[in-house]
């Protein structure tokens, strides 16, 4: 191994890119500050159990770990700053009803979710704690789109989903942990053949099997919402609430940004384990992965003594610069 080589998936920035990153960083933080988001600089390293809360529950394998020679406890290098922001909101702003936080910094991941993802993204994001309504969801959505615009990204596509629908559909199945993971994987791949096999092996009720199968196809333009109402005609409780929320959000966005291409995908379960409501992501054509993502994750902060509704988004500054104009 040559000494000058960097580990796989680790990047450095040199002029002129480093200056461009700095310009973009200032532009974004100025915007967030103008909208009254508090900037937080969470530590690079924390106790592992504090890092693996909230939005990071399924990232244990992504975290670089080491033992603290001082206390003997396990430490982790941050792989996502969202749980850190949640901890700060719960501990330091517990007497405020609503807290808006923004953060920007490098995170490290021992391995990545999909091909070509960097292991050292420069994560930038905003979170609102303490507001349960769709006004907050719309605010972070707008702020994500504004962020992409400031980065010079053109032709952004918005993808919207809601984890509540899938959750309601499988709620009464009483699946084992393993089966639930297997089904989740199948839904993530929208694999009708694998779903059919799962349904026959696990002997799922035809009604539930049909509902899941319909969910796999409930993706496309905004007409998806009407199709979903047809597919779940007597929707009550969670499904009705989820569809109503999406209808309102889509309605608002279409009035405000008539040219924004909106795609809906009711089987998109990004961060299913911790998300509780609407989830969203942004795509640009020609790039095989999402460039920014977010959603609602109510109940966050319970581990730190203050459970609150929360919603937010994050992106990778390096990627925004690379794909922007």
């Amino acid at each position: 191994m040559k000494k000058w080589m960097l580990p796989a998936g680790v990047e450095e920035a040199l002029p002129p890119v480093s200056w461009q990153l700095e310009d973009l960083r200032r532009k974004l933080l100025d915007q967030y500050r103008k909208q009254r988001y508090e900037l937080v600089h969470p530590p690079l390293i924390e106790h592992l159990d504090a890092l693996l809360t909230g939005t990071a529950q399924d990232s244990e394998q992504q975290v670089f770990k080491l033992t603290d020679p001082d206390s003997g406890r396990l430490l982790g290098l941050r792989s996502d700053m969202t749980p850190q922001a949640a901890r700060i909101a719960a501990r330091h702003y517990r007497d405020r009803d609503i807290v808006r936080l923004c953060y920007l910094g490098t995170v490290l991941r021992s391995r990545t979710g999909s091909l070509g993802e960097p292991r050292s993204p420069r994560q930038v994001g905003c979170e609102i704690f303490g507001e349960a309504g769709i006004a907050a969801d719309l605010e972070v959505l707008r702020l994500m789109l504004k962020t992409l615009k400031l980065a010079g990204l053109k032709k952004v596509h918005l993808d919207l989903g809601h984890v509540g629908i899938y959750r309601a559909v499988i709620a009464k199945l009483g699946l084992s942990v393993e089966d639930e993971a297997a089904l989740f994987e199948i839904v993530q791949r929208k694999s009708h053949p694998d779903l059919a096999e799962f349904v026959s092996v696990r002997k799922l009720k035809p009604r539930v099997a049909k509902a899941i199968s319909q969910l796999l196809d409930l993706n496309g333009g905004v007409d998806v919402l009407a199709r979903a109402r047809d597919a779940f005609p007597n929707a009550s409780g969670e499904i009705d609430a989820a569809l109503t929320a999406l209808e309102k959000i889509v309605g608002e966005l279409r009035t405000e940004m008539p040219k924004l291409p909106i795609h809906l995908d009711l089987a998109e379960l990004r961060g299913y384990r911790y998300h509780t409501g609407m989830v969203f992501a942004a795509f640009v054509s020609g790039h095989g992965r999402e460039i920014a993502r977010g959603g609602r994750y109510d109940g966050v902060g319970a581990e730190f003594g203050a459970a609150r509704p929360a919603t937010g988004f994050s992106a990778d500054l390096n990627e925004l610069l690379r794909l922007g104009a």
């Binding site: 979710g113 999909s114 091909l115 070509g116 994987e185 993530q188 791949r189 929208k190 694999s191 009708h192 053949p193 694998d194 796999l216 020609g286 790039h287 095989g288 992965r289």
Partner: peptide, 29 residues
């Protein structure tokens, strides 16, 4: 297909199982 160099692909289930990721949609047999 996962990188987006191709939008779609036709491939054996064996290759997909070995590839082992949820990074692709597999709608049709």
């Amino acid at each position: 297909v996962e990188y987006g160099a191709a939008d779609l692909g036709i491939v054996g289930k064996d290759v997909l199982m070995e590839h082992g990721s949820t990074g692709l949609y597999e709608p049709l047999d």
